[in-house]
Simulated scan of single mutants.
Amino acid sequence: MAKRRKRIRIKTGEEIERMRVAGAIASEILCEMAAAVEPGMTTRAIDELAAARMKERNCKSAFLGYRGFPGYTCLSVNEEVVHGIGGPRVLQMGDIIKIDVGIVKDGWIGDNATTVPVGEIDEATKQLLMATEQSLFEAISHVHAGNRLADVCGAVEAHVRPRGFSVVREFVGHGVGRELHEEPQVPNYRPTGKTPILEPGMVLAIEPMVNAGTASVRILEDGWTVITGDRRMSAHFEHTVLVTEGEPELLTARPREATPERLGLL
Rank of each mutant, 00 (worst) to 15 (best):
M93I: 13
N211M: 10
H142F: 15
G107T: 00
T225V: 06
A215C: 15
G94C: 03
S216M: 12
T225W: 04
G177K: 02
I85M: 01
G175R: 07
G119D: 01
L198G: 06
A124Q: 13
N112E: 12
S135H: 00
I140P: 01
S141L: 09
S216R: 13
T214L: 03
D111R: 03
V217Y: 06
E138F: 11
V90K: 13
W108D: 01
G164P: 06
G193D: 11
V168T: 11
D151S: 15
V143S: 00
V172F: 14
A139T: 01
V156I: 08
V104E: 02
F171A: 05
D100A: 08
I103M: 00
V186N: 01
G213C: 06
I85Q: 04
E207K: 13
V156S: 08
I140W: 02
T125L: 01
E182Y: 13
R163S: 08
A205Y: 10
Q127E: 14
L129R: 04
A158D: 08
T125Q: 02
G119E: 04
A155N: 02
E221V: 06
D222G: 07
V90F: 10
F165N: 08
A124E: 14
L220T: 04
A155H: 03
T115A: 10
E182R: 10
V104F: 05
G164Q: 05
H174G: 06
F137H: 07
H159L: 15
Q127N: 14
F137L: 09
Q127T: 09
I96R: 06
D230I: 08
R148W: 11
A212G: 09
P196R: 12
T115E: 07
L180E: 06
G201V: 03
P88F: 12
G84P: 11
T228E: 11
V152A: 06
A139D: 00
T228R: 15
L180Y: 15
V176C: 10
G175E: 12
P208H: 14
H174Y: 09
M93E: 09
R89D: 13
S166R: 09
A215L: 08
V186C: 09
S166L: 12
E120A: 15
V203H: 01
I219N: 04
